[in-house]
């Protein structure tokens, strides 16, 4: 969670159109959008057009370089690297994005509940947030994985258990700020139910922040997921995943650098895309903050 992200204040009034205009003029943001679109498309449709089975290898085809048959070479078991990258994208990118969505839902529920209700509930939830944030995120996720045991599901649970806290704190802050502007009291006075007030008056004001924060941090989820898999705790063989591919390529670093360059580049390009897109969205929604 960056300091800058906490300082975001969104005015919904200038409208989405102004934000879109700012976004469209931002070349870096557009580059991010293109990168993310390409990666997501590859993850969604890649596996069905992949040149070959990501699990099928042949000992005759081990450690091959770039060729017409294998555009990105093959790995130590003779499996096609392009096919493994495309299939691996499902875990490394789609699962990460899905996980981020779930995290944002949890954080929104906690943040809105705390900020809207205030009082004891707010105090209790925020102390829990304080404790979770007292640990470096990756280390707490690593430890939870260590206790739960290896496997992709365990890693996803561990990341989810840690990553919601920072978002919940920011969202709560936004909700409190919305409250202070008075129109919620007005809505309450005119007899709206709490749920409808949250839906009509609170959520629209925090939606932009949630979107921006989520996009800005997808990169760090992808890195953490790949990192835990690289350590051998996430996706288990033979299923492809980018961090795991790096782990498998490490012993052949001296003779077959291509095998680690391919998955590493995939991770870096994807994270770069999400970071550019997140920066662009923040600047588009929050021109004052980005001018600094």
């Amino acid at each position: 969670m960056t300091v800058a992200a906490e300082a975001i204040w969104l005015a919904p009034e200038p409208g989405l159109r102004a934000s879109w205009r700012r976004f469209r003029r931002n070349h870096a943001a557009l580059a991010g959008l293109v990168l993310v679109s390409v990666v997501l498309a590859a993850a969604l449709f890649g596996p069905s057009v992949a040149p070959s089975d990501p699990l099928a290898g042949s000992l005759d085809a081990r450690h091959q370089g770039i060729s017409g048959d294998h555009w990105l070479g093959t790995d130590a078991l003779g499996r096609d690297q392009l096919a493994r990258i495309l299939h691996g994208a499902r875990v490394s990118v789609l699962t990460a994005v899905l996980l981020m969505s779930i995290i944002l839902v949890i954080a929104t529920v906690v943040g809105v509940a705390a900020g809207y209700a205030g009082g004891l509930l707010d105090a209790t939830l925020m102390r829990v947030v304080d404790v979770v944030l007292a640990f470096p995120s990756f280390i707490l996720a690593l430890a939870i994985t260590g206790v739960l045991g290896v496997g992709l599901d365990k890693v996803l649970i561990a990341l989810g258990a840690v990553w919601w806290a920072g978002f919940a704190r920011v969202i709560r802050g936004q909700v409190v700020a919305v409250r202070e502007r008075g129109f919620i009291d007005a809505a309450e006075a005119s007899g709206g139910t709490q749920l409808s007030i949250v839906r009509r008056h609170v959520l629209p004001h925090v939606a932009g922040v949630i979107l921006v924060l989520g996009t800005l941090d997808v990169g760090s989820i992808i890195l953490a997921l790949a990192g835990l898999s690289f350590l051998g705790f996430g996706q288990q063989p033979p299923d492809p995943e980018w961090g795991r591919m790096l782990f498998d390529a490490k012993p052949y670093l001296q003779t077959q650098p291509l095998e680690m360059i391919v998955p590493g580049s995939a991770i870096a390009i994807t994270v770069l895309g999400f970071n550019l897109l997140g920066d662009g969205l923040r600047d588009a929604f929050d021109p004052a903050g980005s001018a600094r």
């Binding site: 961090g243 390529a249 680690m260 991770i267 870096a268 994270v271 970071n275």
Partner: peptide, 14 residues
């Protein structure tokens, strides 16, 4: 930007 996107474990290998 690139520094923030390249994972430490890949940079190590490179």
């Amino acid at each position: 930007l690139i520094g923030g996107a390249v994972p430490a474990f890949w940079l190590s290998l490179l």
